[in-house]
Computed example of a mutant assay.
Amino acid sequence: MAAPGGMPIYAASARPSLSIMGMDLETLNGHIRNGGTTVSKGDPLKVDDKITEVGTTGNSTGNDLTLK
């Protein structure tokens, strides 16, 4: 979905995976701003921690938020 460049993206969970209706799901943010990531693998997370910023890297035509 289109979003302003540099808009902060916050953690929706304290874990990189969520369990919804018995399914284990992992989240992936795509097209983030170069240099916008504020966490590293293994860092402790809390809900609402800033983790990165919206960008237009890779194969995109404008700033957008891609969650998979």
Results as ranks from 00 to 15, higher is better:
Ile51Glu: 08
Met21Gly: 11
Thr37Ala: 07
Ser13Lys: 05
Asp64Thr: 04
Ala14Asp: 12
Ser19Leu: 11
Leu65Trp: 10
Gly55Pro: 00
Ile9Val: 15
Pro44Leu: 09
Asp43Lys: 12
Gly36Glu: 03
Pro4Leu: 07
Met23Ala: 14
Gly42Trp: 03
Glu26Tyr: 13
Lys46Gly: 04
Ile51Lys: 06
His31Thr: 04
Leu25Pro: 02
Ile20Pro: 01
Tyr10Asp: 02
Pro8Phe: 05
Asn29Pro: 00
Glu26His: 11
Ala14Ile: 00
Gly42Met: 03
Thr61Ser: 15
His31Pro: 00
Leu67Lys: 05
Ile9Gly: 01
Gly35Ile: 00
Gly6Tyr: 01
Thr57Arg: 10
Asp48Gly: 05
Gly22Met: 10
Ala11Met: 08
Pro16Gly: 08
Gly42Ile: 01
Thr52Pro: 01
Met1Ala: 12
Thr27Arg: 10
Asp24Ser: 12
Gly22Val: 06
Val39Glu: 06
Thr61Trp: 09
Leu25Lys: 15
Asp64Met: 13
Glu26Thr: 13
Met21Asn: 15
Gly55Arg: 00
Gly36Gln: 06
Ala11Ser: 13
Asn34Ser: 13
Ser60Cys: 09
Ala12Ile: 14
Leu25Glu: 10
Met1Ser: 09
Pro8Thr: 06
Gly55Phe: 02
Ser19Arg: 15
His31Asn: 11
Tyr10Arg: 14
Leu45Gly: 07
Asn59Pro: 00
Asn63Pro: 12
Leu18Ile: 07
Ala14Leu: 01
Tyr10Phe: 14
Gly42Ala: 03
Pro4Ile: 01
Asp64Gly: 05
Thr37Lys: 08
Val39Gln: 08
Thr37Arg: 11
Val47Ser: 01
Pro8Val: 05
Gly5Tyr: 04
Pro4Met: 06
Arg15Val: 00
Thr61Phe: 08
Asn29Lys: 06
Thr57Trp: 04
Gly6Arg: 06
Ser19Asp: 12
Met7Glu: 08
Asn63Tyr: 14
Ala3Phe: 08
Asp48Arg: 14
Leu28His: 15
Arg33Ser: 08
Ser13Asn: 14
Arg15Lys: 14
Asp64Asn: 13
Ser19Cys: 10
Gly30Gln: 08
Thr52Phe: 00
Tyr10Asn: 09
Ala3Trp: 09
Ala12Lys: 03
Gly30Leu: 13
Glu53Ala: 08
Lys50Leu: 11
Thr37Ile: 05
Val47Gln: 10
Leu65Val: 02
Glu26Lys: 13
Asp64Trp: 02
Lys50Gly: 02
Met23Val: 13
Tyr10Leu: 15
Ser60Arg: 15
Glu26Met: 08
Ile32Ala: 08
Leu65Phe: 15
Ala3Asn: 07
Asp49Lys: 09
Pro4Thr: 03
Gly58Arg: 12
Arg15Cys: 02
Ala14Asn: 13
Gly6Asp: 02
Glu53Val: 01
Gly36Ala: 05
Asp24Glu: 13
Ile51Ser: 04
Lys46Trp: 00
Ser19Gln: 14
Val54Tyr: 04
Met21Lys: 13
Pro4Asn: 10
